[in-house]
Design a protein around this nucleic acid. Sequence first.
DNA 1: AGAATGACGCTGA
DNA 2: TTCAGCGCCATTC
Length: 111
Amino acid sequence: MSFKRSFDLDVLEAVSSIPYGKLATYGQIADLIGAYGCARQVGWSLRRLPLPSRVPWYRVVNARGMISTSESREGTDWIQKELLIVEGIPVDNKWRVPLQKYLWREGTFSK
DNA sequence: AGAATGACGCTGA
DNA sequence: TTCAGCGCCATTC
């Protein structure tokens, strides 16, 4: 099974670490699991993620602070938008979110 | 093994 | 600030 891949597990673990009401980018997650430059692979792991999931995958957006819409998602992008709004994060009509305002700071101390 | 794909990122125009 | 192009790297055919 694909889930046996440690990479997927690391991604899910990192994503699960995102606090409520915060956002993270694919590149940030990749870097967090020690796979800098593998932002696309993070997207793959989330893409194959089954919907009834306890993982807050919807808190992950691209570096542009925009929800990555795609044909392959069959509307999951819309679900992501709804979930973000529920957490208090406004989503623009162009699928953009105030990333710099809600960006998750791993260190938290604004370093 | 080689080529194509993709829920990305960064630089330049 | 928005748009287009090139680079990364694991997965899939």
